[in-house]
Design a protein around this nucleic acid. Structure first.
Lengths: 254, 254
DNA sequence: CTTATCGGTTTGTCCGACAAAGCTAGATTT
DNA sequence: AAATCTAGCTTTGTCGGACAAACCGATAAG
């Protein structure tokens, strides 16, 4: 151990970072509530006593972090970070780490089962109505892989929502964003794939309605295993989530 | 449905965003690999034909997103986004959404069990050695809540690592960052709390060694339920993860 | 009451500048 | 000759000022 230092460590964080931190603190500890304005750049310049360029760099940091956004008129305001935006970043991180579909599948299995269990326990009438609406639309486009894949992703989001557990909603999102874009290829590649998917959704919703946890888990498991079988016809589970898949997810998102 | 539009939607993204997107694309699709230099600000100014202020705003966006960082000499280089940094953002999002400890607990239970199952199946000798090292250190500080809490968090990170599933590692991180800071208060507030914690870790590690999934799950469940009982002595599970807890997590991180 | 117009703000971008810190390579010392 | 020092060049962080375009609010015109 070294001797007790005479001086405290000097803070050498660049000014733009300090600006970002200062604003962030006010939002995190609730002094600025979501929706409230932060002030104009000019005001921030005056308050912090730094140049506008510096303020703007700080603002970019917070904007990217999802803590502030610009409303219709581009004025700054605090906001609730949206899961989706952050989850997108995480998904990209997963891509760069070259995770495999096996990892993705295993984790999604865990999270979707937790999701359906929560939904069976706590889904409200409104949740069930949303799921039913999704199911009806799915039945209409059973022959169209692209539309069906989109509705499938939505079905699982709604299921997570029905679980009333926001932490779970958040935790499943990054994996889901990588997982579900492949649904289109799989449904398109397997005859009867679309019908099986809708059938599974129907049973899951039915289980949620009847508060039958066992059935919900069973059909969710079958549903995901269908995905897996379909996927293995196209590629190896141990292949990394390639950039090609990412581009697919990308195109769908924009 | 509207008629087919005559014109494509005109692109109005600000220049700094385009700069960020352009660099991001190069990294995501692998043309720039992690560790490779991006170039100096001056070079980017020349390549994109925009002002340096604009380039710098774009850089801040990417930096915050974790796609690029500055090395020792502050030169820009691509990098693998760190889970931790992104997870921190997500944790903050959870705070702002005022999630409850019940949600946190339920999801953590799911993820930690998945984690131990993976570890039992696939832990390497090295993983086990790391866990054993952690356990030994924990036994030494069993009377010190702060140190023990930190080692507990590490134990669970190592367990997730031992599962060899990076998606799972990532998915559990945001919840864990909110969950484990409370360990200190709980261990400190419950007599024998520290001993029970180390005991549970010992059994979990033992189960991983023996590849005994049932025992691993059992002890993980007990371990978390201990946390829950301890927590309920201090506060209600249905209370939101208050800013006070966040500040706690914050202080520990910095 | 709706529409058009006109300043005043605010943002996005640009230009130029400078101190501090890092790097490079030639000069100096041992 | 090898190690060290030094001076100069580069790069980053910050600053000040500037301007066009978009936006807001209010007033004037139909």
């Amino acid at each position: 151990m070294a001797a007790t230092p005479l001086f405290r460590r000097i803070d050498v964080a660049p000014a733009y970072q300090k600006v970002a931190d200062a604003i962030e603190r006010e939002i995190i500890n609730g002094r600025i509530k979501p929706g409230e304005p932060i002030g104009t750049e000019q005001q921030l310049v005056a308050q912090f006593g730094v140049n506008r360029s510096t303020v703007r760099e700080g603002i970019r940091v917070l904007e990217e972090g999802g803590l502030i956004r610009r409303d219709s008129s581009r004025r700054l305001q605090a906001c609730l970070p949206r899961y989706n935006k952050l989850a997108t970043r995480l998904s990209r991180a997963l891509i760069l780490h070259e995770v495999t579909f096996r990892e993705l599948f295993e984790t999604s299995m865990t999270l979707e089962i937790a999701s359906v269990e929560g939904a069976v326990e706590r889904a409200t009438e409104e949740n069930i109505a949303e799921l039913a609406g999704n199911l009806a639309r799915s039945a209409d486009v059973v022959g169209n892989p692209a539309d069906l894949a989109e509705l499938d992703a939505e079905f699982h989001v709604l299921m997570a929502k029905a679980s009333q557990n926001r932490v779970l909603q958040l935790a499943r999102e990054p994996a889901a964003q990588l997982f579900f874009p492949t649904t289109e290829m799989i449904v398109g590649g397997v005859p009867e794939g679309g019908a099986r998917l809708v059938e599974a959704h129907r049973h899951i919703l039915d289980a949620i309605r009847r508060r039958d946890k066992e059935a919900g888990v069973l059909w969710t498991r079958r549903h995901l295993q269908d995905w897996r079988r379909g996927f293995e016809k196209i590629a190896s589970l141990d292949r990394s989530v390639e950039h090609t898949y990412m581009e697919h997810a990308y195109a769908a998102r924009q």
